[in-house]
Design a binder for these strands. Structure first.
Lengths: 204, 204
DNA sequence: AATAATATATGACAGTGTGTCATATGTCAA
DNA sequence: TTGACATATGACACACTGTCATATATTATT
């Protein structure tokens, strides 16, 4: 978490800094990103950076979490729109990330995050469902989900269902990027996988 | 790929170098690993390292691929033992990685690989099934798998099934590590997920 | 055996980046 | 006006990387 000093900064300065950081993290993945570059772009002295943040990762985690928060909100909206059909909501989410994301920089940032810190991102997303962490959000989500649709015995299996769906979604995204699949191919592959787990992969 | 010069080295020297590298990559994830450390442990001059490898990643990828090769062979053996039941084979594989892996260093190496280069590892594993890459291995595997068990229409859906299973396995491993779950909890969670996708998550 | 051609070894060095710290400057309450 | 505290700044020590000129070994050629 950034230090209080950072949050005390003027809106203007915060904005400049975040812009500079996003640019750098869109250019290269975290491990290649350099503080030197960020402060050069933002026009602040080296010492100041360490006044605001612990280190590179501190700043990165902050940006990432902010983006994930928005993503979660968006997912909730999708869930509502699809009357609690988790899989349909996720399909649209996937589609959104592939084709509708606004600008190049945003897409590159996401790409770098997913390719090089997959576990961090995936886990943060998955944890939307984790009861032990945040009761309110869990309740909000589970209320939205149409569990009658699911073939589950106990309520806690719902968490597993969500994890399965996201694990597959992330896997597909990574594969798409690494193999250079087209958006259509990726969406098609994801749909196939979703259909498979819907109906079950073993014969009844 | 390491340069020819590396492979021309004496068995002794190769062994020392690999030992040193494995130690370093078990200590920290790739991005924190330092060549300086490896050459110090191996007792070779800096210049020599660059005579053998392109850079840090070159050496790392080589080690990882070697380990993955062995893993794939092991998985094939498991598949045979379980008469082509992919899910049972994967359950045992998961169990093997969690509890039977020989020594601490091996476990840490794996841990760092899976937490920080998940996509690389996961994809290499998944590609066992990729027809476009290596026909022979694909054939060998598909012949082992008892497809009659599966609820699939076309043969290519088999690839999806494998991807789904591995995606979930990797996800669970990462989650186990990050949340510090016990081996039993992790195996239990994985089993639950497998059972869910076997029977299908949607009501028929 | 002498020489040339080629492969390998070595460590000094320039370049780049990180995190720290002593010092300077600003802010605000007593 | 002063002191206490918060913030800003850039020089610096340290760590690591990749390269290159030079030294040495190996093999082929006459």
């Amino acid at each position: 978490m950034p230090k209080q000093t950072f949050f005390n900064l003027s809106q203007q300065k915060i904005h400049t800094l975040i812009e500079a950081a996003e640019k750098e993290f869109a250019r290269v993945p975290l491990f290649e990103a350099s503080i030197a570059n960020i402060i050069k772009t933002a026009g602040i002295p080296r010492g100041s950076f360490y006044q605001y943040f612990e280190d590179k990762e501190d700043l990165y985690s902050y940006l990432l979490e902010e983006k994930l928060k928005k993503t979660k909100v968006y997912f909730l909206a999708l869930l509502r729109r699809h009357n609690g059909d988790m899989i349909e909501a996720m399909k649209e989410m996937y589609h959104y990330f592939l084709t509708i994301l606004p600008n190049e920089e945003e897409r590159n940032f996401l790409r770098n995050a997913l390719l090089y810190t997959t576990n961090k991102v995936e886990n943060s997303f998955t944890n939307m469902f984790d009861v032990t962490r945040d009761h309110t959000i869990f309740k909000e989500i589970t209320e939205l989900i149409d569990t009658s649709r699911f073939n589950i015995n106990e309520h806690h299996e719902l968490v597993h269902v969500f994890k399965i769906i996201t694990a597959i979604a992330f896997h597909n995204f990574v594969e798409k990027t690494l193999k250079g699949l087209t958006d259509e191919e990726a969406i098609q592959a994801f749909s196939t996988s979703m259909d498979l787990i819907k109906r079950g992969i073993y014969r009844q």
